[in-house]
Simulated assay, not measured.
Amino acid sequence: MKFWRTLARLLGALASAAFCASSASAAFPDKTVTIVVPFAAGSSADANVRVLAEKLRDVLNTTVVVENKPGANGMIGAGAVVRSAPDGYTVLYHSASLVINPWLVKDAPEPTQTLVPIAQVASTPYILAVRSELGIRSVADFVAYAKANPGRLSCSSYGVGSPPHLALELLKQSAGIQVVHVPYRTGFAQAFVDLTLGQLDCAMDLPANVMQHAASGKLVVVGATAPSRLVSVKDVPVISTDHPDAVVTGWSGFFAPAGTPPEVVRKLEEAVRSAIADPTVLKNLATVGMSPSTAVTRDEFTKTVGSDYRRFGAIIKATGIKIQ
């Protein structure tokens, strides 16, 4: 009898816990939702998410605050969300660097195990541009020049292990060429100066950084890392035509801690997708050269996160990339 009484109490406790969890999910959200941004206040990522937060307040009908936790290439903020309660009240806004960090830094959160994708917000390709004096006018020209001059071309990105750096490495691997990577953590402004002075040969960077200088005649835009031509850079051919393995699309999106109830994740996804479609948000994303991910489902975003995690890990291992 004692066994049966104990079993009955256990089953009752489990049923009660399930009922409480279900009730909490049904009531979500009934308090403040905090969006953790692992980048500094005033950064482009911070600016994007603050516009989104304003719309999410209306959609969720609750207070939504943005909390900046910069440092360690976004790992401090990501770690804070991983350690938070899986109830949907603390979420992460991050970029593709989230799936790169674990391959470069010890103890970085492994995103496919510790976080649940909520919704993709936006995406962007990277642009390969060269200084005009080289006479390179296409991706084919670039590859031919690199093969004729192995190791002589120098190409910038905004950091070791950054998505554009990995895009460059994937192109090098696909084309069988040698190009020296030069990281510019201070941003594209300094890289552009060095390009115009002839101290740097090419750059792999964001469209918002590169395209504004293309009209000067000092840079020639030769290709984009998108899988197909995009409206935002419709005149730029895609590298994938000849090198499909070099497709790299940067993305940003929301994540919740692993274990967050599916119903809560679904409500957050619906809210984010509604906010993305707002004209103010669309205009803000276009201003910084990002394409809104209004048609990307959560399942598709989850697959992207997983595939990028594996693919970036493979190229990092193959090339021996390390953060000094």
Score class of each variant (00 low, 15 high):
Leu7Asp: 07
Ala8Pro: 01
Arg9Phe: 10
Gly12Thr: 09
Phe19Cys: 13
Ala27Ile: 02
Ile35Trp: 03
Phe39His: 08
Ala40Leu: 14
Ala41Cys: 04
Ser43Phe: 07
Val51Pro: 05
Ala53Trp: 04
Leu56Ile: 07
Thr63Leu: 05
Lys69Leu: 14
Ala72Glu: 15
Gly74Cys: 05
Ile76Met: 13
Asp87Gly: 03
Thr90Asp: 00
Ser95His: 12
Ile100Asp: 12
Ile100Cys: 00
Trp103Arg: 02
Thr112Asn: 10
Gln113Met: 10
Pro117Glu: 14
Ser123Cys: 14
Val130Trp: 02
Val139Lys: 02
Lys147Phe: 04
Pro150Lys: 07
Pro150Val: 08
Gly151Met: 11
Leu153Thr: 00
Ser157Lys: 09
Val160Pro: 02
Ser162Asp: 05
Pro163Thr: 06
Leu168Met: 13
Gln173Arg: 11
Gln173Trp: 11
Ile177Ser: 12
Cys202Asp: 07
Leu206Gly: 01
Met211Ser: 00
Ala215Cys: 02
Ala215Glu: 15
Lys218Ile: 02
Thr225Phe: 03
Thr225Val: 01
Ser228Asn: 12
Arg229Thr: 15
Val233Met: 11
Lys234Thr: 08
Pro237Glu: 06
His243Met: 06
Pro257Ile: 12
Gly259Lys: 10
Leu268Met: 01
Ser293Glu: 08
Ser293Gly: 11
Thr302Asp: 12
Thr304Ser: 04
Val305Ser: 00
Asp308Phe: 07
Phe312Cys: 08
Lys317His: 05
Gly320Leu: 02
